[in-house]
Design a protein around this nucleic acid. Structure first.
Lengths: 202, 202
DNA sequence: CTAAAACTTGCGGGCCCCGCAGATTTGCGG
DNA sequence: CCGCAAATCTGCGGGGCCCGCAAGTTTTAG
């Protein structure tokens, strides 16, 4: 990868992390695109060369994490489908090197509180759901590859993908509602097992 | 219901139907809020008293249809859960009296083509997914009521709701992709049966 | 009939997002 | 090391969206 692409990736990341941090700290609509651009060290105009909206910049962190599920699924083409799915999902909920490096500067409680408020923002919810939908399409393709189907014509891969993302989203929401009394991993494992029970390969 | 509320409901419907019709005919970003307001016979300012964004006005038709699923589910508290779910979903895909009355003026093929283009619009996708999420919450409450659980604390109702909406969304997407070669009802019945198999009451 | 409550509308303003064109930086052979 | 072509950054300008506010108008209730 040349210097050019590396710089681009850096700016991309810097912008999205800055967007998340500021929105969590101050609240979504008290952050101007100008602020995000400044925090990332680029001009306001450049912001929109990287993201087509403020919400997209924030949701990009979510998209990035979700897409790794599909990626992990591709890298694990052996074994039963639902084992691979469960493993691929769980892996994305381990502590992340990049995550701990980027958005510190607040204690955990205050941070989660800020996140809870932020994800209520309608524009943001829509954008995050869209990220989930993009991921779903990727997972569907990965599943189709694995079982030798066609993501264009068959319903089954999309059904699986939808079930997976549904379980993930539901568990995340449940976790944000009820707090960390039950480990996320256990919830995910349980949810995926239930959902997967009805979706054995046709 | 007083005159006041009836007029409000009328304006609400007029605005959303006009928004859909214009967006399908001309394309999302060639429709200005001003146009929608004019088509519904109100001032541009009034539009935003009813909807907080252009996308929301269009997606409202989708939201309305989806919410009827939860409503139907409540009205059918007897029998096995998944029978009731399947029945409630299928009912919303019958021809609709209001639907045939409002957006005519084009042949079916051209209309679906327009819809296909429209739903690609990112802002709109997000808003429609958000409508699905709102519905999901409603369904979760309905399911919790039915099985005597608590939508606030239990995961299961949300898991069911997510699975239902996932199946519905997936089937709709599949139908838009592949055309009307297979009846939607059959796809829905099949998808719900598969999904439901893993989610019998815990 | 009258007063309060609810709704509509125009105005003003802030912000977002994008097209365009000129300056700047990077990649690549010579 | 040089200089050119391509990619990128930036400022400017503008269209459009959305909302608060303060009349003006309609509906409701007593």
């Amino acid at each position: 990868m040349g210097l050019r692409e590396r710089k681009k990736a850096q700016t991309h990341a810097a912008l999205s992390w800055a967007a998340v941090r500021l929105a969590v700290e101050r609240g979504y609509d008290k952050v101007k695109v100008e602020d995000i651009a400044e925090a990332a060290g680029v001009s306001p105009r450049t912001f929109n060369n990287y993201f087509s909206s403020k919400a997209e910049a924030i949701a990009f962190r979510h998209l990035d994490r979700c897409l790794r599920i599909a990626e992990a699924l591709r890298e694990r083409p052996e074994g039963p489908l639902w084992d691979a799915v469960t493993h691929s999902v769980l892996r994305q909920f381990e502590p992340d090197e990049e995550a701990v490096a980027h958005p510190p500067a607040t204690d955990a409680a205050q941070w989660t509180a800020g996140v809870r408020v932020m994800v209520e923002e309608p524009a943001l919810r829509g954008e995050m759901l869209r990220a989930g939908a993009v991921t779903e399409a990727e997972i569907a393709v990965a599943v189709a590859e694995r079982i030798g189907g066609d993501a264009e014509r068959d319903l089954y891969p999309h059904l699986v993908a939808s079930a997976v993302m549904g379980a993930v989203n539901t568990v995340i929401a449940h976790h944000l509602r009820t707090g960390p009394s039950v480990p996320v991993n256990d919830l995910l494992t349980d949810a995926l097992a239930r959902i997967g029970a009805g979706l054995s390969t046709p």
